[in-house]
Amino acid sequence: MLSIVVPCFNEAETIPHFVAAVDAVMTPIAQEIEYIFVDDGSKDQTLTILQELNKQRPQEIHYLSFSRNFGKEAALYAGLKNAKGSVITVMDADLQDPPELLPQMLDMLQNEHLDCVGTRRKNRTGEPPIRSFFSKAFYKIINQFSDTEMIDGVRDFRLMTRQMVDAILEMTEYNRFSKGIFSWVGFKTEYIAYENRERVAGETSWSFWGLFKYSLDGIVNFSEAPLMFASFVGALSCLGAGIALIFIVTRALLFGDPTSGWPSIVSIMLFMGGLQLLCLGIIGKYIGKIFLETKKRPIYLIREQSEVITEVSKDE
């Protein structure tokens, strides 16, 4: 059975289109499927639509509804945790992930003895230039400083074996970055490239600032480079201050020409203060991650779920 995990946040307009598109692709090949929709605290009619779909097809379409918005990472984890198929895929409801690739991905997974078939965009057509620039910069930075390789343009849309999904579920950390986790667990993976697509309906919930924070989380979660940078800046500043102090004292003793002028002193003080705050901020980011992990809070809380999922969870 193929389990399709679909995180949803304000996707009321796209869900019917998504189900119809996937059904049109999967029905001809007679693949047994189950949909696992995860409502991540939506403010529109997403939950109502999922309830109606579940009533129409209770054995195929299931849903989880969070008590509030916990973020896409939590929704992905919840969906994977409740998926029962031997093969699991993760897709977005906006149809930016082409359902017509699923038969090819299933064929590759079975005939090429792979553990995962992922997807990546060939280009970023239709995306704002500034977002494309920072996205490419992120992948260059993370691959430069992290031991976990992340491919530029890779999507969460991927087809995985049960073995790989079980390995992902063993990583129960609160601070999650799925692109890094998918890569970190390893397993034999191949990628399919496709042309970028626009949303079929609705508006994206990802803002530039949201994506920027998400990228920072990815760097912090999978690299110690920022801490090394803070240490390097501190050592370099101390070295520079020591050389400058020796120079000033030597010049004063030999030439009687002490450095004067408060503007230069204030500028140096502000510069050094800024470096200290930067380094403290980097260290504080890591400490904040540790703080959240030590609280042992649940990754998500469920307010409502479909009956089939409820019954399976009780049996477990």
Rank of each mutant, 00 (worst) to 15 (best):
5 V>Q: 09
6 V>G: 03
10 N>K: 11
24 A>K: 12
27 T>A: 15
33 I>R: 13
36 I>G: 02
39 D>A: 05
41 G>N: 11
41 G>K: 09
42 S>D: 11
50 L>K: 04
62 H>A: 00
63 Y>M: 00
74 A>T: 00
75 A>L: 04
76 L>Q: 03
78 A>L: 09
80 L>E: 00
86 S>D: 14
92 D>C: 01
102 L>I: 13
103 P>L: 03
104 Q>T: 07
105 M>C: 07
109 L>P: 02
113 H>P: 01
115 D>M: 10
123 N>Q: 08
126 G>K: 04
131 R>T: 05
131 R>K: 09
131 R>A: 06
131 R>Y: 07
132 S>Q: 11
139 Y>S: 03
140 K>N: 02
145 F>G: 00
146 S>C: 02
149 E>S: 03
152 D>Y: 03
153 G>L: 04
156 D>E: 01
159 L>S: 01
160 M>Q: 02
162 R>E: 00
178 S>G: 06
181 I>R: 05
184 W>D: 12
185 V>S: 01
188 K>S: 06
191 Y>A: 02
193 A>I: 06
193 A>R: 09
194 Y>V: 05
194 Y>F: 15
200 V>Y: 05
203 E>N: 12
206 W>T: 14
211 L>T: 05
211 L>I: 12
214 Y>C: 12
216 L>E: 09
217 D>F: 00
219 I>D: 08
223 S>V: 06
225 A>S: 11
229 F>S: 05
234 G>L: 08
240 G>Y: 07
243 I>L: 08
243 I>G: 00
246 I>G: 06
252 A>M: 13
254 L>E: 08
257 D>S: 13
262 W>M: 15
263 P>L: 15
267 S>R: 14
269 M>P: 00
272 M>C: 14
275 L>A: 04
280 L>D: 10
284 G>T: 06
287 I>W: 10
291 F>K: 15
296 K>W: 08
297 R>C: 11
301 L>T: 14
304 E>S: 02
306 S>A: 06
308 V>P: 04
309 I>Q: 04
311 E>Q: 13
311 E>Y: 11
